[in-house]
Design a protein around this nucleic acid. Structure first.
Lengths: 240, 240
DNA sequence: CGGAATGTTGAGACTAGTCAACCATAGTGG
DNA sequence: CCACTATGGTTGACTAGTCTCAACATTCCG
């Protein structure tokens, strides 16, 4: 699965176009979901891959005693459902009104053998998901609440339509954020308040975040990890 | 990368055999490493895939302020180095005396297009690594120290040569365990002592663990997650 | 307007982290 | 063969950060 927020390789063809090319009746495969609706549940047989077309989805796992972990948020262009076992280990649900292209696995595998580009795109999706999970796990395992939320907000603003956009409208609720960051909802709430009181951001409404000091958040987010954008640039330069 | 301890699909051909078949001078590609020696470092260009032949390796990431996270331990049969970007985000090091087959990426990609079995094996390696990261992250994000160590020991004994073997010789030191579990070395040590005092295990030497009550550990490990073996059986039954 | 769902704040408890001392083991060199 | 040292591991006392439980505020919708 594309593990978290998508990071498209800008130079390769959009995976959506590849699928549209491979599946003649691609449009017919797009299914709409309502907020909270389940796409697949834990234990369901793995019959399809999924490509987000609109809105936001989340991948979650529940424990028997009610603990919950959100593993990823998927946005348009992300692929998910790339699990190797016969049964899903993650539940995929719509966060808001959203839609998915549902792509039968078998047909995908056949087309992967025919079309190296599709093969490469899916393989890259899987490996990219892994690298995203690296940062996620580093964050969960080794960061403070402040660092986690700063990382989350920095990532969101980085990947929002207008990169560097300072106004975020969070589609997910506090509980989703908490479960994504490995915190409780109260700690998330307190940390938002802390950032507001420090002047890092404004909270005009519950789900609206206006980032006032992106630099301060980025510094916090990077404290225990690579700075996001800067590192990417360094790498690109080093490899050019 | 094969994310953590390997979980071979028993029904598919060993990936090692596939590589040996594809690379005529496979033996020449095997490189030995000493304990602590680095295979690739963070930032190094991603030139090869790696297949563990002997011993144990670990994938780690450091933060600028010295925090360290171990993402996986690799054992014979595991593939690693499956990162999509041009530069490694993880450092791979030998835990003890060990050896790796170093497989040039480009040649692998070419052979993946020729041989669907190799393609499937590598793709499966990547997706399987992702599912292993799910449990790892769930554990780090939502479990207590006791649950984490119990999970770790249960996993080790599950995957040891004699499944259900109650004598484990840990190749890695306490710091590696701590950084894998997202704990401090002191907490790991205290938790070992706690388990010993409860009669769950014996610690005849530093690196030797004799599991006396595998059931108790498994129950702790499963408290917040699937029971390992049982669930696997349930799934298999459900899908038969 | 009323009720349900979502989010915030506060007080106190508790787990794991920090810092420091101590112990065990394995080499090493006199 | 025995100190001596280096490394790895354990234990203790204390602290800090996050969780828990509970009350309250806000927003959303019918």
């Amino acid at each position: 699965m594309a593990y978290a927020f998508n990071h498209h390789a800008e130079d390769s063809p959009k995976i959506g176009d590849l699928f549209a090319e491979s599946f003649p009746h691609f449009e017919a495969l797009i299914v709409p979901f309502e907020a909270g609706q389940e796409v697949v549940g834990e234990g369901d047989p793995t019959e399809s891959y999924y490509l987000v077309m609109r809105g936001m989805f989340r991948a979650v796992k529940f424990t028997r005693d009610g603990r919950r972990q959100v593993f990823a948020f998927y946005m348009p262009g992300d692929v998910c459902g790339l699990e190797p076992d016969a049964a899903h280990k993650l539940t995929i649900e719509a966060v808001d009104g959203a839609s998915m292209a549902v792509l039968p696995r078998h047909a995908c595998r056949v087309r992967m053998n025919d079309d190296p580009r599709l093969n490469a795109a899916l393989f890259e999706g899987a490996t990219r998901a892994l690298t995203l999970s690296i940062d996620h796990m580093m964050m969960i395992g080794r960061s403070s609440a402040e660092e986690r939320l700063a990382w989350f907000l920095t990532m969101l603003s980085t990947r929002s339509a207008e990169p560097g956009d300072i106004v975020l409208d969070l589609a997910m609720q506090r509980q989703d954020i908490a479960d994504y960051l490995g915190l409780t909802i109260e700690t998330v709430s307190r940390t938002f308040t802390l950032f507001r009181d420090r002047g890092f951001l404004r909270l005009p409404r519950k789900r609206r975040v206006e980032i006032v000091r992106p630099d301060a958040l980025a510094r916090l987010a990077a404290a225990d990890r690579d700075a996001r954008a800067p590192d990417r640039v360094e790498y690109a330069a080093a490899l050019a």
